[in-house]
Every structure is written in structure tokens, then in C-alpha cells.
Design a protein around this nucleic acid. Sequence first.
DNA 1: CGAAAATAAATGTGTTGTACGACAG
DNA 2: ACACATTTATTTTCG
Length: 972
Amino acid sequence: MELDVLERQEKEYSFLKQSDDFYISLFNKVYKALSSDAYLTEENRQELLFIAKGLEIYSIQSTRENFFGVNYAENMLYASSIYYLTDYFTTSSILARMFETEDYESEIDRFIHAFLINNRNIRNPYMDRLNDFLESGDKQILISIIKLIDERLKTSDPYKYVQLLLAKRLIEKFSENNIWNSLTRANPAINWKDFVLHKLESSWVLFPSQEAALKKGILINDNSFSIQMPTSSGKTSLCEIVIYNEIVYKKRKVLLLAPYRALASELKYAFTKKFRNLGLTVKAIYGGHTPTKEEKVEMENVDLLICTPEKFMAIENYIPNLHETFSTVICDEGHLLDDEHRGLNYELLLAKFKNSSTQEKKYIYLSAIIPNIATINSWLGGDENTLIKSDYRPTNLTYGFLIEQGDNKNKYFNLKLYSQKNGLEKSLINKFLSVKEDYKYKKSSTGKINTYKYKTYKTRAISVALRSLNNGVVAVFTPQKGENGVKGLAEEIINQISLLNFPKPLDFSKTEELENLIIYIEQVFGKDYILTKSVENGFVIHHGDLPQFVREVIENSIRKKIVPLIVCTNTLAEGVNLPIKTLVLHTIKRFNSSLKIMEPIRKRDIKNIIGRAGRAGQETEGLVISVNPSEYSYIQEVISDDQIEPVRGYLYQIINEITNELKEDRLLITNELIDEQSEEFKRLIDSIDKSIIDSLYEESTPDNISDILENLINKTYSYFQSDYNNKLTLEHIFKLRGEVLSPYLKRNEIGILKQSDSTVRIYEDIKGVINLGDDFWQNTSLPFTDETIGYLLDIIYSLNHLEFDFEQFHQENDINLTKGLLKKVILNWIEGEWYGDISNKTNVEVEDVLKIMLFIESNIVPVLSKIVTIAKIELQKQGIIISKDLEDLGLFIQYGINSRINLILIELGFSERMGILFVGNWIKNNFSTLNLNDKDTIEMILRENKIEIIEYLKETVPLISLDAFRSNLRYI
DNA sequence: CGAAAATAAATGTGTTGTACGACAG
DNA sequence: ACACATTTATTTTCG
């Protein structure tokens, strides 16, 4: 019914004709379970879940019209309660929330409903008592409620009996898992009242996964803990408890390492408000902004610091050994240790902590499922008693596999369904897709009926996605961006909705908001780009070539359900949580260039992506559908956590490779040998160098550098896992690199390396190319012109270091990126043009413009900043100061602006470029007499002209920009 | 009946995600 | 290694 394929089912569903019989039998089973405690056992729990699903359809809006004779509201109490009793608390509450407490008449019904949706605001003998309990935690009160119910059960009329029994079971369950009970049991020494009173607003119980962690003694024990649980199983909420406990009870300060900006910002948002009311101080710093003086003071006094690992390393450079203030460290998304670009830093940061002379820290390592978490745990100082594993998920996931059936005369596709918790339970949706019914269309040029080409997986994935639209928000995952990935799928959608009769995304979108989205996207990308065409058809796409601010707009459109369909790559797994009901896996294979084969992506990543379906608190369940039979067994393995890749740490992988190479060639590695290796290998060594540079502190000298490095190495996860040979390689390489860096230490050049974020190689490269005698350095300031950019690009093009990057860019993209083109793109960009305009002016496709922009952002800008920083420091020695404008050059290019006012707006927290550009101009035109290079002046202008600015923006920019600017303006 | 559509088999072409930093004396 | 598009030859379908 939900997928609108009922009438094509071959099987007769007798219960549809005898729905009252079916209902009675379901109800009977519920009653039996409740009256015999049978629901408490694991097996019966599975069955109860199916019963709940059965009851559910008699109450939810999309299906209940098909039945009659059932009191929707009353029945929902049963369905919802069963979800509650089987630990699906969020599902329970979503279902119950489909009705109001006022919809119920009897005292007991109102109580049950209010209980299920955490509504404390009704007056009622049961709820009054429950309220007393919630505020005091006095167990006796719960006992008294049960007594009260028992009394009434004896005298109750038959119509109330089941409800009373239900209430009794709910309260019995609640006596066990309520937050008071769990917390005081986990740490009786602390008064939880303040915390609980705060927590009550969101939840009254803990998830089994959280319970498991508490039972292991995480609040009492000072050892390190490792926690492995699926996405969205209440990690944040568990952290909240642990952090509160550490600060209030253990009197420790907590450092929370969150490796993505989006994550850090999410956590900041989640914690700041709650903890402030509890009298704890929270600070979050990540990406982009450099902390002010006051903030630095705050950082040392704050109770909880939320930080990206890189940012924390940066801070440690000006607050040496800041980490000693924090005796508890929480490592979120711990599997990042494996990351090719960032794992090394993360590992060395932790090694540095472990190497500290102060007391051993308590580490809490949070991660998705990895088989060797025990190794990591013992590296961090934990043991088997401090290892917490849970596979609890607050929403149930169902997996669907599309099965091809029939011959050419009558071809159709069934959907085979497996429930997550019970691999054996299969069900089948017949003719989920059918060639006869779904793929026939009339060709207008001939007037004949044609069959749509349904054989490709693209077609199938999209058809499945469109078919699922009735059921809620759909995401289509694909690991590639181009024709065989996001772009191809988007085109396929447009094609299918124009020819076939599937549900159309436009019919599920919010027209007015969508209009605004279309206007905005068209302004940014022009009419021809695939994203523009997508939004016009009521869906969106999402991948890493899209600039960050656009991704946010897109995520928002899904979050607010402005559009019901998104096609995306891994960005989905990395980004923030979205309310996705159905996830369609187009394919999970990606081309591996070195092996020249298509290869499945990591199971760990698939697991992460799959976990995005059925967001707790938003959906009652999730559905994951795979359409490619050659991948089914691999996905089955992912579902059953079979052979998930271990986390070794990136450093370990390199070292292991090097050791093996050396063994084969019987070589002894030397710095000369390193210099002879490929650029790829040297960049690997560069990353080691950089981590070394970053972890050198003030007290480092040429004499003790090898000691410092050796101590550091000994504490790494790589060393911990290594065998004798690997240990030798590891020590040897770090020693070698120490030798390379030692002269720079001697010459006091480590500072300049750090400040310019350079490795030795690029530093020497730049020094060899730039001519500090040129007037350029002294004469350049805003606005940047053709000549400015030209001069710098000349330098860029003469660097050896970037040749490799250009080569790679050309290998990966079919774009001839000449110096002229690059200059034109940069100039247009800083002059305020958008991707669509730049595409028109340069005759380059929008998608290629995006790729060029990405190259500029990630390859050109960092090098430009290094060049400018190195020049600045060198010139300073001669007493020459370069302009502030030139110093900030990287920012101007990065943000695509060419005036100081705009940069100030960004510093003031404005993030949406269109608004920034227009308001910047408006200020320039209206306040030319003031000093517009001054932050305070700009702030003053903004504060005093809020209304005028909004009025002006209303006339000039799309509503989305206006809204973004307005919400930033609120904080001025 | 004849054009259009479907089928089958052979050949050719293209394939590559995501992410964080940017600093003192 | 694989998905998909294109080409070609042949058969089937339908207005």
C-alpha cells in the first residue's frame, strides 16, 4: 500500500478481505504477550515487532482508509506501546505523536499517550505521580503507580482492562530503563537531579546501547574505553552523560575531538545550550576562524572543548601543552585514523598526548564497527572490561534486493525484503517494477508504443527510487560523480519522469520554497547545469564538486522536505544527518585506476551510508534497496558485519608497504633513496615531515629532536601494532626525516615552515623562484587586478612542486587548464561572478568550472598563501612590510571577493556570498565618507541599518540569500 | 503490408570520492 | 572488471 503496488500482486492477501479477523488475531496476540510476560524474550520480541507493524497500518493515515471498524487513536496506543516495549523508543514516540493526548477520553488512555510522547502537562492521577517521580527519582513512586494500576485492574470494566495492563507493562519497563535508575546505578556517588531535569525535555529513558556502556562502568572507571555502535544509536546523548560525569564528578576537563567541521558544529549546537544551563562552559573551535585573545584565555578554563584534531594541533602552537589541562579525551569517528590525508596527524596527536609527562589520560574512543577495536582499545590503555560493543539501532532497517523475473514476454522485478534483526524473515513485494505496466510509453513521433530501455542499473535504481517516493524521502547513492554516477542518474530521472508514469518528485515537493530554490540555483549555475535542471524537476544532487554553501542549501531543502529526492555520493556519509526513509544503492563499485578494475568501496563506508536510512526521531523505519545482483552477496556481508576492514592507521599502512619494498630489494632506506622515488612517494614522506614539524614544540633543539621523535614514535598506534621489522622501519624513517629537518631547526626556520604550512621541499622550491626585490611585493594591494594575479601565476607555474598537481589535474579531467584560463577564472571569481557566468565567459562547461574552482581552492590557494607568507617573513627581516591585503590574498580568492568590506562581512560571520557581495556594494555606495576598512565601522553600519539592508536585499537577491543574510544579521 | 520495434550479438568506450589546516615570539 | 552505448543483422509486432 505504501509503495502503491498492491493491485499488481499475484498473491491474494486474504487478510485484506477479512481485515477485522486479522485485527482480532493481532490483538489477541498482543494480549497474550502482555499477560504472560512473553514479550520479554528475544524471539517473541521479533514477532511482536511484526505484530506492531500489522497494527500500525490500521492507524496511519496512508493506509487506514482501507480498513474499517478500528478506532485509529486507540489502536495507535497499542502499536506504539509495543514498539516501546521492544526498545524502539523513537519509533514508538513518532507513531504516538500522530495523535494528540486530547484525542483520548479515558484517564488511562490519556496517561499512556502522554507517557509515550513525553507529555508531562496533563493532570491525571497517574501522570501526577509520574511527574513526582521524574522530578525526584524516588522508585517508591513507580511502585505506587503499579499498585494503583493493579487495584484498578481488579475492578476495571472489560473495556479498560487491556489499557490498564498495557500501562502496567510500560511502567514496569520504565522502572528498569528510566534515566534516573540508569544513571544512579552507573554512578551512585553523584547527584543527577540537575542533569536529569534537563534531560527530561528530550528523553526519559536510555537506549540499550547507552545502558550497555554505563553498565561497563564508564562513569566510575578511570581507564580508557572504546565504544562501538552504529550511526544514530545515541552516541551524542551518551557523550553528554559521560562528559557531565567527567566534569562534575571526576573534576576533569574534557577534550572532544570531532574530525569534521559539520560534526563539530553539530556537537557544539547540541552541547552548548544544555551545558550552559547546567553551569558548565563549552567552547568549540574548528576551521576558518582564528581564536581571539579572550578566546585563548577561555580555552584554558573551559570545561569542554570541542575541536578538530588539526585545529587542536594549531592551538597547541600558541598555547603549548594545552592538552595537559584535559585529562579526558573523547575521540569521535575514530576510524579516521585510517584516512589517507588526515589519519597520520590524528595518530600523532594522540601519540603526543600519550607521551605527555602528566598523568595518563582517560580516552574514550568512539567508532563505527571495526573488527580490531580491541587492539585500539588496548593501545589507548583499555582492557577487555572497557570495550563496549552494541549493535542496537533505534529504528528498524529493512533491506530490499531487486530480483529480475519472467521472460521477455512478461518481465518484471520483485523486491525481496529482509529485516535487519532477523535475517531469516523474508517477504516479497511482487512486481515492484513491471515492464508491461511501468516501462511502456507512446512515442510521439510514430504514435506507437515503445518499451523504455530498462536493462541498465541506472534505469532500475531510478525507477525504484521514483516508485518509493510515496513512502517518504528517497536518497540514491552512487560512488561516482559523472555519467555513470550522479550526473547520469539525474539525467535518467528527468528522462523517466518525462516518459513514464512513476510518481514524480514535483508532486511531493513544496512548491513555493522550491520556486525560491530554483531561482537561487539558476543564478549560481546558469540554466544548463544539471543541478538547475534537477531542481526544476523537483529533486537535488549532492557531491564534493559542489561548493560548500550550495551543499548546505541542498541539505536544507531535504531536511525541510522541500524536495523528496536526492542523488548523492559519499558526501552523504560524511555530512550531517538527513531525514531519509528509503536509500537506493545504485552500485557500490568504483573504478580503481591503479588496478584498472571496478572494485567495491569499503564495507565500513557502505555501513555508514546504509545507516543514514531511517533517521531516529524522524522516521519509524528505514528501507535500503540494492538493484545490482552482482553486489548482493557483498552487501549481505556488510549487513551481517562480516569481514569489515580493520583500522590500522595510515602510518602503519605506509610503513608496512615500505618494509615490504625494502625486503624485496634488500635495500636500506636513505634520504637519497627517498629523493629518487616517485612524486607520490615523496608526498607521502612530505606528510610525515609535516606531522613532525607540527608536533615539534618550542623546546625542540637540533640535539634533542631525535629523542623527541623517538618518544613520539614509541607511543603511536602504528608502533603498537608493528612487528620487529616494521618497528625498525618506523624508527628509521623518523630518524632520517629528523636529520633532514634538523638544519632548519638550527637555522631557526621551523617557525617559517610552520607559519607558512610548508614542507621542506615546497619551501625550498618557493624560495628559489620568488624574487623579493620586485616592486610587486611592496606595491600590491586591493583591488587585485589582471597584473597581480598574472604575476603570482607566473610564480606558480615556475614551481616544480605544482607541475605534478597540474599533471594530475589534466589526467583526471578533460580540461586544458592554461595559465590564461586559470587567470580568467580567478579574476572573474573574485570580481563576484558565479559559476554560470564564468562558464559563459570562458566557454567551459559549468561542471568543469567547478572542477577548476576546486583545483584553485585546494591546490593553487594553499600554495599562493605559502608564497605570500614566506615572502612576508623574509621581507620583514629587511624591514619591509607587505600590505594586509596581499597577506589575505588566499582568503579573497577562496571566498571570491575583491574588497575589504566583503572580507570584514565574512569575518563578522556572514556566509552567503551573494548577500555579501550586494551588501558590500551597498555599503560602499552609501557610506563612502566612512572608513570602510574598519571592522567596527562596518559592524556599526550593519547594526544601524538592518531594515534598509533587508529592504535592499529583497529587491536584489533571491530569497534564499536574503534569508541567509538575515539570519546572520540577527547576531550583529 | 510495411514500418517500427524488439532482440541478440558484437564492438567500442570510459571509468577516479571525501576531507582539514592556514599559527607566537 | 564492468556498465553502458552503439552498431548491425534479424525477427516480431502492430496500426
